[in-house]
Design a binder for these strands. Sequence first.
RNA 1: GUCCCUAUCGUCUAGAGGCCUAGGACAACACCCUUUCACGGUGUGAACCGGGGUUCGAAUCCCCGUGGGGACGCCA
Length: 463
Amino acid sequence: MTVKTRFAPSPTGYLHIGGARTALFAWAYARRHGGKFVLRIEDTDVERSTPEAVQAILDGMTWLGLAHDEGPYYQMQRMYRYKEVIGQMLAAGSAYHCYMSREELDALRAAQEARKEKPRYDGSWRPEPGKTLPVPPSGVQPVVRFRNPVDGVVAWDDQVKGRIEIGNAELDDFIIARADGTPTYNFCVVVDDWDMGITHVIRGDDHVNNTPRQINLLKALGAPVPLYGHLSMILGDDGTKLSKRHGAVSVMQYFEEGYLPEAVINYLARLGWSHGDAELFSREQFVQWFDLDHITPSAAQFNTEKLRWLNQQYIKAADNARLAELARPFLVRNNADPDNGPDLAAVVALVKERAATVVELADAATLFYRTLHPAPELLAQHVTPDVLPALADLAGRLEGIDWERGAISAAFKETLAAHGLKMPKLAMPVRVLVTGETQTPAIDATLALIGKEKVLARLKAAL
RNA sequence: GUCCCUAUCGUCUAGAGGCCUAGGACAACACCCUUUCACGGUGUGAACCGGGGUUCGAAUCCCCGUGGGGACGCCA
């Protein structure tokens, strides 16, 4: 049997971090077993589904590198199939028309809640042997309900949570087609998973309660029941449910904040899954290791600090030319022109050890492309009158050398020796004068990249 | 309210009855390295929710509490 998994988002918003992890796990499972990964867009909620959201989900998956082998399928394009199956179920008696109005239903639920009961449909229109059904009111479009078994339990061995059993007594006859004829979620999922030959349903655990209904439906249809694995939810940094408040709405936001997709993948993989003590591993390694047995059944809290650390590890290891291209737009945003100054890849090589994100990388690179004027208090603090002679001496020595790091370093050391100073005493004022900052890479390497002319001009301006 | 799931350092987690005086990682703190800031290195503090069982032995199995989460839609 070929493994087939699917990711089935509803296009009502962006691909958020929880959805991304679900997609990652479903993708990895298919890859791990040489199977297929299906993308299915569940757009039957016409009110809330948008083409923009579909695109956003596609973009997010692409950025993360989660390619699907089949699809995307769109449920709205499969209406003919759902209607066909509903017709069959009606004919077979496993589904029936229900004429209870919304108002009646609301009243029923309200009464049940008042009695502290679990709100559920009471089966008024459910056909039973020897039971006389009410007369269908005229002018009312009926919904179609599934005739759920009354007795027994539905059980499955959840691939992450273990065995789960739910009594049929807890379930009611849920609606599979609305009054306007459109099918509902639980029904479409079942028909799709069946038609598409899905073998492993890996999804969020908010679907645990839907699973028994879907299994009953599958059985009524004579369809095979796939294996289910329910992933617990991801909580925000503050331990509460993820929402817009946490700024983690869309995975693309991580792109905008300067995270590398491989870092996000690595982080997400470790959130709720583990392989011994392994923390830092490639996508390929992840696919080789991934299994359902080591998924944590409880909810996990998102930790931006750790994501940052991982991202930093990936930035340090990343190719300079690639990082340069990624940083370029952020440099431009900083009003720096990356084409007017030292080679960006060389700058990136120098600053990447002190950047946790591409944004920070660009920020650190900015001083190489823009004249930054030091704040007066920095000048007052570092460029004190007693270092002026040493600075003048240094400027003189720099003027006569070949402009490369080793020679610059030598000029510093000679100046230090001549004036009996320690490195920071001289390097800090130079740093402030030339870059406008107190935090830069090693001063000799920094000066080497900025260029002789600019360095000398800025130094002399202070003397 | 009913049903379902869940519970190890602040956080992510290792742990499948003895290998656990509970391991790793992020974060914190200290020290080292050092040309500022970082990086890197070394080290320290930090957890099995509570109570009952089962067992020679329980973080691991069972039960009951408690905390957290989810579901109970003509949403998905």
